[in-house]
Design a protein around this nucleic acid. Structure first.
Lengths: 150, 150
DNA sequence: CTGAATCCTTTATGATACTG
DNA sequence: CAGTATCATAAAGGATTCAG
């Protein structure tokens, strides 16, 4: 494993798998027995609006851009992702409303606009890493080290 | 915090935040500097097909059902989620093709069909937990303990 | 019960053009 | 540069019906 475009993720994968193991252990011991389908379903319905936003097309890409750069202009993002301005505008507005990114206008002359992840936005991005890592690992090899899934 | 429908997740949140912290620390030290927008963008494009599937409507819900039950019939799922059979059928087929769930037909009389998470599917579900936990924590209170996001 | 087949509506996205 | 407005298309979801 040497063409690590993302970064040395043989190591990242280890961290992620370790996290998953802990979560799995916790869930197994503490609560799974008491859950029922309706609970989870109801629960996920509450999460759905946010899920729909964060996991729609382009949004993961966007999240990992400011993550890199700290702040980017509208056109920087547009060019980096090769997305139409209408779609990008929509997404940015939605993400701003959700408090995931923030838009700042400088009082320079001419004024500049830049976007950056908020703190919660950054946490969101990081919380997605385990999932992205697993997806990637699955794509790389079908035989992924497996945690005990309940 | 006592109406924990999901489960005692003040504790789960701790585990998740700890994981995120480790991931954050790792990324910060090891690689973020060397990344550029095109890399990440290219990378996420590869993940996109899977992301689109797993994060589309109903799929998280589905993932957390067999997660609970180990195996469910078509109609169990249908009733639990209150989803049309066309949509459910589509989703299940796609998930099966992706190796995330598996469909089994028993040779009873009458034959029964049931669905269950595969091992990778279970890992997927667990890998989503951090993200779901963060989303939920965000909804519960705007002031979420924050990791240093780069 | 487990779907497949149809049809219809809604939502998401894309392309293009245009403005302060 | 940072968008908005408009139009067109595609993709996803929902409702209903029917069959083995």
């Amino acid at each position: 494993m040497d063409e690590n475009t993302y970064c040395g993720e043989s190591n990242l994968l280890d961290i992620v798998l370790d996290s998953i193991k802990k979560i799995s252990g916790y869930l197994e011991k503490e609560c799974i027995k008491e859950l029922d389908v309706e609970d989870i379903s109801r629960e996920l319905k509450l999460l759905e609006p946010t899920l729909t936003i964060v996991l729609s097309k382009w949004v993961p890409e966007i999240l990992y851009l400011p993550y890199l750069k700290e702040r980017m202009s509208f056109n920087d993002i547009k060019r980096a992702l090769n997305v139409s301005s209408r779609v990008l505008s929509d997404k940015l507005k939605t993400l701003e409303k959700e408090g995931i990114i923030e838009r700042t206008v400088t009082d320079e002359n001419p004024p500049r606009v830049h976007y950056a992840l908020t703190e919660i936005g950054g946490t969101f991005a990081l919380a997605l890493v385990p999932f992205l890592t697993i997806v990637k690992a699955k794509q790389r090899s079908s035989e992924l080290p497996v945690t005990n899934h309940m």
